[in-house]
Structure formats: structure tokens, C-alpha cells
Amino acid sequence: MAKTLHRLITALATAVAAVGLLTVAPATADVSPYIVGGTRASIGQYPWTVYLASSSGGQFCGGTLVSGNKVVTAAHCTSGRSPSSTRVVWGREDKQSTAGVVASVTRIWIHPSYRSATSGYDVSVLTLDRNISSSYLPLATPSDTSLYAAGTNATILGWGTTSSGGSASRYLLKATVPVTSDATCRQAYPQYSNTSMVCAGYPQGGTDTCQGDSGGPLVAGGKLIGATSWGRGCASAGYPGVYARIASYHSVLTQQINS
């Protein structure tokens, strides 16, 4: 059985770690424009989509600007990292360009119950050293139950790999995936929890987030409904992507955003 993989990319390793965390070096050349099964996206259309980078500039995760100086991402992207080693890049559709803003991080908050992505609570809030002049994406609330209904079309975005274990994308990519039912997700993943996670993907696979997209947005109804978390491989039939269910964390995330 294939290992369950967190969707994280680092610039420091190219091997599969013993815990099943797939890490690959970011590409320096252009690649085919697919998240997995997606297309190029305009940063102007999705201005709240950001990526996380090391102090040397290597992209390793995604995130969502939710206020002038706050970014929501996945806890497994920031666990073990220091603010001084982390950057947030806003307004840069092409990673090889110098467009946009590179902000330093002054504080990293990780949900206190987080232990691993597959255990839930995979959310983190970054505080930036400046206010970004941009529109931002509101969080889904507990009353937004319709956004989590099976079949709801949602948008995924990121700069991650275009196949499991493949090369990272130079450009921001997007795709549309349907939210799956809790029963479907639980059948694929016994550890699935509908109180902390939500799944999205086609039964036949073919379209999905992948390594390096971790922490990036799952968007429906003009709101952030999920943060890319984990899954078995990428775009595999019968194994949808798993996302942190933002509505479940609305209260605690709002506290951090307003702090």
C-alpha cells in the first residue's frame, strides 16, 4: 500500500523520509501547466494566494492572505520552523520573477492540538512584518454548511508538483474539484474526521493538489473552506485530497487573525 503523504515540498532533500513525508527539490525550469490536471492561474484573479519560502527563496508550501498581515496555512508546513527562516511571497505568479512582495514572518501560530496532518488540527497562522495592500479571502464559518456539501465545486491553487514526486511548477496553477461526501472520504482514509477535515476530488482521480501545494487554498463560494493537508499520492482514483476544514477552526483562527 502506498504511503500517505503530506503535500509539502522543501529545497533541502529529494528523498522520501521514513515517516512518509515526500520532499523534492524545486524545479528551476518551466514545466507543463498542471497542478495535477489544472491550468495556469492569474495572480490578479486570485490575489490572496501566496507561497511560503525559506530565507534563501525556495518555495515549500502555499497559503492564503486572510487580512493585511495574516496568512493561513497548514501546521505541517510550519511545524519546527522559526519565523526568521520563513518568508511569505505575495503577488508573484511566476516564481522566477521578482514581482510582488517578499514579507518576513514575525510570528508563527500552530494549533495547539496539532500532532500530525493525518490527526487533524492542521492549521497555522503567520503574522507578517507589514500590511499587504490587497484583497483577502474570508474564512468559511460553521454556518456555511452548503459549501461543504458533496458535489460543491471548489478551486485549488498552488505552485507544487505536477505529479506525485515530480517537478514543482514555475507558475501558479489552478483546478476545479468537487467536495466529496464524508462517507466517500472515510472509505478512502480510515483516519478521516469530518470535524477537522474535508475531502475534494473526482472518483476517477486525475485532478488534485500535490507536493508543494500544502497549506494552499481550497475555495468555494468566495470563502476559504480548506487548507491543503494530505492524501495518498496525488490525483489517484479513489483517493481524494484531504484539506483542513476551515469552518471547524473559524473561532480560533479569527482570534489569531485579530490578535
Score class of each variant (00 low, 15 high):
W230Q: 03
L224E: 09
Q255F: 11
R232N: 14
A237H: 13
T195N: 15
C234D: 14
V252G: 02
L253K: 03
G226L: 08
C234L: 07
G221E: 14
G206L: 12
G205T: 12
R245N: 02
G226A: 06
L224K: 13
G231S: 03
A237M: 11
Q204G: 14
A244K: 04
L224N: 11
Y239F: 15
P217K: 09
G241L: 00
Y192V: 01
A244Q: 00
A237C: 10
Q187A: 15
A227I: 08
T228I: 15
Q187I: 05
W230C: 02
P203C: 12
A188K: 06
S236M: 14
I225V: 15
G238M: 09
G221W: 08
V219Y: 08
L253E: 05
G241K: 00
S248N: 07
K223N: 13
A183Y: 14
G231D: 01
Y189E: 07
L224T: 12
G212P: 01
A237K: 08
V198F: 02
V252H: 01
G222R: 03
G241Y: 04
I225M: 09
G216L: 05
S196W: 10
A188W: 02
C199R: 10
V198A: 07
D213W: 00
N194G: 03
S229E: 00
V252E: 07
C210Y: 05
T207D: 04
L253M: 14
A227V: 13
C185G: 03
A247I: 07
L224W: 12
W230M: 06
V242F: 11
L218C: 07
D213Q: 05
D182Y: 08
Q204H: 12
Q255C: 02
G215I: 07
S236K: 14
R245S: 00
A220D: 04
A244Y: 00
Y243H: 04
S193A: 10
I225H: 12
T195Y: 13
P217L: 08
P217S: 09
R245H: 00
C199F: 00
A188Q: 05
Q255M: 04
Y189P: 01
A183W: 13
G216E: 00
M197D: 04
C234M: 09
I246C: 00
V198Q: 01
C185Q: 03
S251F: 11
V198C: 07
A200M: 09
G233S: 10
G221F: 06
C199L: 09
S248E: 06
G231L: 01
Q187K: 13
A200G: 10
C210S: 08
Q204E: 15
T254E: 10
C234Q: 12
V198N: 05
P203K: 14
G206M: 13
M197G: 02
S214I: 03
Y249D: 01
A183K: 13
G241V: 07
N194H: 12
L218Q: 08
A227W: 00
G216C: 05
G238P: 06
S229V: 01
C199D: 06
R232H: 05
T254K: 12
C210L: 02
T254L: 07
Y243A: 08
G221V: 13
Y249V: 05
G221A: 13
G231F: 03
Q187D: 13
A200V: 12
I246Y: 07
S193N: 14
S214N: 03
A235W: 03
G233F: 08
K223L: 14
A247W: 11
S251K: 14
D208L: 09
S214K: 09
Q204N: 15
